[in-house]
Amino acid sequence: MDISTSRAGQALVITVNDNRVDAAVAIEFKEAVRCAAEEPGNPVILDLSQVTFLDSSGLGAVVAVMKLLGTSRPLELAGLTPPVAKVFRLTRMNTVFTIHPDASGSLQAAG
């Protein structure tokens, strides 16, 4: 799982550089994001702009990370591509996360 991190003001940005978050990588993804989130920064923004496919296993992994971080360090999302946005919409998980249109927008908002 290829993941990189950067800082934007107070926020930690975790960028997923792979284009699939599916059942084959869900556990690895969860672990990689959890490790990346050990770096300081609040909120934690997950940049999914390169992800073109996410299934419910991937969605479950994103939710699991959100729960691990707890309410004091919210996990926010940025850059959902249309197929990924659809999964969040169909499962109503779009109501649970703060979703930024793109990472640069979220950087400004969080900075």
Binding site: S56, S57, L59, G60, A61, V63, A64, M66, K67, L90, T91, V96
Partner: peptide
């Protein structure tokens, strides 16, 4: 916050 059970839906 469910982590699964979305598939059939």
């Amino acid at each position: 916050l469910p982590e699964g059970g979305f598939g059939w839906h």
